[in-house]
Amino acid sequence: MLQIKNLKAAINGKEILKGINLNVNAGEVHAIMGPNGSGKSTLAGVLAGREYIEVNHGSVFFNGKDILDMAPEDRSREGLFLGFQYPVEIPGVSMVNFIRTALNEHRKYKNLPPLSASDFLKTMREKQELVEITAKMTNRSVNEGFSGGEKKKNEIFQMAMLEPKLSILDETDSGLDIDALKIVANGVNKLRRPDNATIVITHYQRLLDYIVPDFVHVLYNGQIVKSAGKELALELEEKGYDWIKKEIAV
């Protein structure tokens, strides 16, 4: 589904990603872990199409298509979803209007007619239940005045609405208490299907108790320095990132 080959990227001329290689297949959950500043969010940003990140080398293929020259909106319509670490507040744009517009743009891309008002509302209700958010929240402006937990639930709600093939969840666990974390993880798990995949980016192992990955990768200094099964996350939790740093030094 996703093939990243020797990806190098910089911000303001400073190289952050120094040759990333990663393959993600349908049905898989990958966790990308790493200390602060290792390039985790930059990787998520490159995949979603952040314009301020300069890609200098390498390729990213998503379902057979080179996405690096694609606009962010086309990547989304192709089935790529980024769950933001810091979801953006957009005063004056209602959640309903926002998500309806997004959904219909996806449908237009697939040559489908816009969803009828009743079908849209029905879908909304179903997906709201999934992440336990209320209709009251969806009537407000996008993320405006939402608590940290509400913002993250809202990301998963949007993910549920858009039904992406590949979801990249960037530090979805940050700022969440344990109850909200469970709800968010539960939502992600319910959305797992054999034909979609998830990349979970996290600093801590805690989230991976609830979203169990098939593969864990450690990103350090712009490169994936170690990949293994889910047990790697536990090892990292126990030993800390210094262990990896030392191992690399050797």
Binding site: E51, E73, V88, I90, V93, N97, A102, E105, L162
Partner: peptide, 30 residues
């Protein structure tokens, strides 16, 4: 226009012109 808000909308599949329009409309709505 706020770049972060623009990117957020585009990352959900909303086109650049449509995102701009939604933001401007919200701006006027105040």
């Amino acid at each position: 226009l706020n770049d972060d808000a623009m990117f957020y909308m585009r990352s959900r599949g909303i086109s650049k012109p449509e995102s701009r329009l939604l933001l401007l409309h919200a701006y006027a709505y105040e």
